[in-house]
Design a protein around this nucleic acid. Structure first.
Lengths: 119, 119
DNA sequence: TTGACATTCAACTGATCAGTTGAATATATT
DNA sequence: AATATATTCAACTGATCAGTTGAATGTCAA
């Protein structure tokens, strides 16, 4: 089951290029908030808020050392999202296949019937 | 490359349980707007807007037949998202592994040095 | 033609989001 | 103690979102 809110938060957090860039940076190793913010053309506060969104989704963990906050990437939610998407995709695809197969069979029947009815 | 906006729209569209439920319904086959809306405890208009979000993300296609609009599920964006997540996850994980390996080696060196320095 | 049906359009509300600026807090440095 | 640094908090703006209601549009059916 896994509360859908978690998935919501993960996908929402990932649906933003700035946040994905932050995660990419952190996947290379821990960094402080200021370091993370440096490359971006926006205020430190703005980045701080993005980090909060990532934290809420548990994609980022914070370790306080004095005045420095070290941020690190947590892969678990991404793993979960990947698994959900993979499973769902397969399931939905199989249902589509079923439908398409049925339609194909119907078409087949139709064609046969027509060609027999009007030779 | 694949314009990140596409990914943004896909993930954003998926980050909502109502929209995921709509997709699930459509994965079982085409349906009209009213049919899709029926199970939900919200106005038809609200569902219509969710459908629009899904259309913008190209997860849903619309086929007009008279006054009826038949909606169908399009798997491509989900495939793309799954692929992106899978690749990214692997890449980020490998970078994490590298870092962890480095840290482990550092620790190892530290331990060795210490134990040699103070036997 | 009249009326019912399927759907969207338009306008509105309340919530959330992304960003800004300025101040506050806490820690480090001199 | 004074100052600089790292970070958040608070308050604000503008945009987008999720939902509502009521009207408009287009099509089917009697």
């Amino acid at each position: 089951m896994s509360a859908p809110r978690t998935l919501d938060r993960t996908l929402l957090a990932l649906a933003d290029p700035t946040r994905r860039a932050i995660l990419q940076r952190l996947s290379a190793g821990e960094a402080r908030v200021t370091e993370v913010a440096r490359p971006f053309d926006m205020s430190l506060n703005a980045v701080s808020k993005h980090i909060l969104v990532l934290e809420r989704a548990r994609l980022v963990k914070r370790r306080r050392v004095g005045r420095d906050h070290f941020l690190s990437y947590r892969p678990e939610p991404l793993d979960a999202a990947a698994q959900w998407i993979a499973e769902t995709r397969t399931f939905w695809a199989s249902r589509l296949d079923t439908l398409e197969r049925l339609l194909r069979e119907e078409d087949e029947a139709e064609r046969t019937r027509t060609s027999t009815d009007t030779p």
